[in-house]
């Protein structure tokens, strides 16, 4: 017997909240991406917990797809960040935004 399902979901929701705060409150694109990763991981935890709760393997399959999507997302996101850094010399979202604004 493991813990109740609600505890797993609570853990996942806390992780998600942390990731969300990270994406919203850090002025750094890399940290923003890290926050996204944390949120995806939280979703995977929730899926695996739900799979165990419902005694279905389906949840694990969804978690696997999350893993694969996260890998693709990180690769593209980091490449974009590197590109942005090369062009603007900064990772601050606000500065980038203002750069774009200037160019328009």
């Amino acid at each position: 017997m493991i813990v109740p399902y609600t505890h797993v979901i609570l853990l996942a929701s806390l992780l998600f909240l942390t990731g969300m705060i990270c994406t919203v409150l850090r002025r750094n694109l890399i940290m923003l991406l890290l926050g996204l990763e944390i949120m995806l991981n939280a979703a995977a935890v929730a899926f695996v917990g739900a799979g165990l709760h419902l005694q279905q393997i389906e949840g694990q399959a969804a978690a696997l797809f999350i893993l694969a999507v996260a890998a693709a997302e990180v690769a593209v996101g980091l490449a974009l960040i590197v590109c942005i850094y090369r062009q603007t010399g900064t990772l601050d979202p606000e500065c980038i935004e203002s750069d774009v604004c200037e160019l328009e």
């Binding site: 493991i2 797993v8 890399i30 991406l33 890290l34 990763e37 991981n41 995977a44 935890v45 695996v48 917990g49 799979g51 165990l52 694990q60 978690a63 696997l64 893993l67 996260a70 890998a71 990180v74 690769a75 980091l78």
Partner: peptide, 26 residues
């Protein structure tokens, strides 16, 4: 946690992909 929740394959993949590949990429 994945191991604990009965998903050993996912646990291994988590180590390999998340903790290994993705974080190293970061």
């Amino acid at each position: 946690l994945f191991f604990l929740l009965g998903a050993p394959l996912l646990g291994i993949l988590e180590v390999v992909i998340y903790a290994g590949a993705i974080m190293v990429l970061f």
